[in-house]
């Protein structure tokens, strides 16, 4: 009798495992396919997106809802940049030093972007400066103390139905998007979803109670570029440099090699 009960129990357990496995396989195969090359809608230079047409893009980002003292710092910087440009003596920025945008700037995708879905990870490569970020899937986010701050931070993600939800922390304070200041505690949330077969929207929310009155949310739209392979981009010879006053200067003589 025990033997039969044991066998029945074993069969039931095995059956449950098989059924559970089928559910997992089904769930994974229903995950949207966002693998491929993408280009920011509206930034097509000489290339046309080759997928199906895209709906009207989302509205541009609202100004950052900074707290008064941070807002002034930001506005002063933007004003200084405008005035320097008007004088023909622009201020140096990270691009002069061949530094990449980091997060969330790389997601502006003004050069094409590649998304690769693999087991346990989604990798996003931005052609400009050959930037790479890794989204670790279905894992808990680390504590900020366990992350070395960097250009891209530490990202974890999960699928919620048709939406990829990503959480990123650990972006260095010196890595600013649109010159907007932030603290070490800045948190970037992304919700990525196919709004049309070949159109991906990324709703980005920047959360940082130290500097913001409320979260800053804006959406980027990307169009699929079928049959486009990303090119490399090495910031090899800038010829620009930052002088002692922080102004952009150009080196006139070409490199010797």
């Amino acid at each position: 009798m025990r033997g039969v009960r044991g066998a029945v129990l074993l069969a039931a357990v095995c059956g449950s495992i098989v059924v559970a496995s089928l559910h997992v396989i089904t769930a994974q195969s229903s995950v949207p396919d966002i693998t491929g090359s993408w280009l920011r809608q509206g930034f097509t230079v000489g290339v046309r997106p080759t997928g199906q047409p895209s709906p009207t893009p989302p509205p541009p980002a609202p100004p950052p809802p900074l707290k008064p003292s941070y807002l002034k710092e930001w506005q002063d910087r933007v004003q200084a940049i405008r005035e320097a440009d008007a004088k023909g003596q622009p201020l140096a920025n990270n691009a002069v030093a061949c530094l990449p945008d980091g997060m969330p700037g790389m997601m502006t995708a003004v050069f094409p972007m590649e998304i690769l879905q693999s087991r346990g990870q989604i990798t996003i490569i931005e052609e400009a400066y050959t930037q790479v970020r890794r989204i670790l899937m279905d894992r808990p986010q680390k504590s900020l103390d366990d992350i070395e701050p960097g250009f891209y931070g530490h990202s974890v993600g999960r699928w919620q139905g048709d939406t990829l939800i990503v959480d990123t922390i650990g972006v260095k304070e010196s890595v600013r998007y649109q010159n907007v200041p932030h603290s070490k505690d800045m948190r970037i949330s992304e919700r990525m979803r196919l709004v049309a077969p070949d159109t991906l929207w990324n709703e980005i929310t920047i959360d940082d109670p130290t500097v913001f009155e409320k979260p800053w949310t804006f959406t980027f739209a990307y169009q699929r570029m079928k049959d486009y392979t990303l090119l490399e981009y090495i910031c090899e010879d800038n010829r620009e440099y930052s002088d002692a006053q922080g102004r952009q200067q150009i080196r006139i003589t070409p490199p010797s090699r």
């Binding site: 440009d85 023909g88 622009p90 920025n93 990270n94 700037g105 003004v110 952009q248 150009i250």
Partner: peptide, 17 residues
């Protein structure tokens, strides 16, 4: 591009020179 570049998105050294 003129329309799109109203809010410059990619950090780039300036053509203002």
């Amino acid at each position: 591009l003129l329309i799109a570049m109203v809010a410059p998105a990619l950090a780039h050294h300036s053509f203002a020179v």
